[in-house]
Design a protein around this nucleic acid. Structure first.
Lengths: 207, 207
DNA sequence: CGATACCAAGCAAGCGCTTGGTTTGTAAAC
DNA sequence: GTTTACAAACCAAGCGCTTGCTTGGTATCG
């Protein structure tokens, strides 16, 4: 399953919005605005203008402004969980599975869904507690993917640190790339993936 | 020079505010509120109430609300640059210098100045561009501390990845701890420092 | 004809900040 | 040692504007 077919099957199951639909376009623009200016600084008038409607008309599609933020986050997590799963299943060794996860997360953060992923990281506090709880549940699913692979590497003796600590350190390291990584800067995502693996002392040459 | 004497000499030079002064107390409360609720969600009425004055009286001490955010960030960077420098000078080998820097940054993020450091990380976009430029200048000073040490480790052959990439990955990994690390969770800051070093394949046993 | 998608207008609340005036601390003048 | 002078610190009130959201109505389309 490639990225596109994963997206299409999620749309078919009504788990994410079709980017071509009115709702999908709004969520895409919302992600961009929320990332660029932050959730609080983005007004419903900004959001409406971005898709060419009146501010009041937004509330025909979403009950509240916060619902828009929640939808951005929920759909992003759903898509990325599916992408991670696919990426990992394609790899064989534990080390390659980790590399595949790192690569996939970097792709999520710095690729097509980057705007939405940045929102997920930096606008967390703007969600109501109830919504946070719901999003956290979804998150746990793909966190487990990481922990399983890291546990295996630990048992292989190639990872010296605690898996759950490593995962959290990696979450920070990879999320943070959104603030500095630019694909046109002479460093490809593959390069960056290798750098992360190298920093962990897991570079291929040493294996 | 211990932490306290560093703080006192910065106060004497008027580079950071005395925590006991009106200004110092306000900045402390502001850091807490900004971290807990975010800059935008914190009103000048919240800030004033936190120090027991009327909202209008704030503007006797600061020209604008943004000036308060800027002051929190600037003073935090000044203090931490001084702390980093001191921590590093106390160590001898390159590896120990790196460990000292990691330990010092974790302390900054999760210790006394943690609230202000979290603001520095998460409220960056709320600063005007002019203020951002000014804060960035201050930041460069201590980023160079890191790069020098990482360069040396690279030349020693114990670090396989690019120093500037490693620094950015570490920035993310360490900053992110503010979202999950709790000192009462059975993991001390020393433990955490060792975990970071271990993740990089630089654990002492292997040296 | 009924549902869906939208517009035009505006409301109530909350926002950062200003204003004019009062209290408080300090130190020289008498 | 009281008086005078003055600035710093603060209050009470509220202004002008923006905010998220509502309302009542209209176009579009199967």
């Amino acid at each position: 399953m490639n990225q596109d077919s994963i997206l299409r099957s999620l749309i078919a199951e009504n788990l994410v919005s079709d980017p071509a639909s009115a709702r999908g376009r709004l969520l895409h623009e919302a992600a961009r605005l929320f990332r660029d200016k932050g959730y609080e600084r983005t007004t419903v008038r900004d959001l409406a203008a971005a898709v060419g409607i009146q501010s009041g008309s937004l509330f025909h599609h979403f009950r509240t402004k916060e619902d828009i933020l929640k939808a951005v986050m929920v759909e992003t997590i759903r898509l990325n969980t599916a992408l991670m799963q696919a990426a990992m299943e394609a790899a064989t060794t534990h080390r390659d599975k980790l590399q595949a996860l790192i690569r996939a997360e970097l792709e999520s953060i710095n690729g097509q869904t980057g705007e939405a992923m940045a929102v997920l990281v930096f606008e967390w506090r703007s969600l109501s507690e109830a919504s946070q709880a719901y999003v956290l549940e979804l998150r746990d699913i793909y966190e487990q993917l990481w922990l399983d692979v890291l546990d295996a590497l630990r048992k292989d003796g190639v990872l010296a640190a605690e898996p759950f600590v490593v995962r959290r350190l990696l979450t920070g390291a990879l999320s943070w790339t959104v603030t500095w990584y630019r694909p046109d800067g002479g460093l490809t995502l593959d390069d960056l993936t290798e750098q992360v693996v190298a920093m962990m002392g897991l570079a291929r040459a040493e294996n």
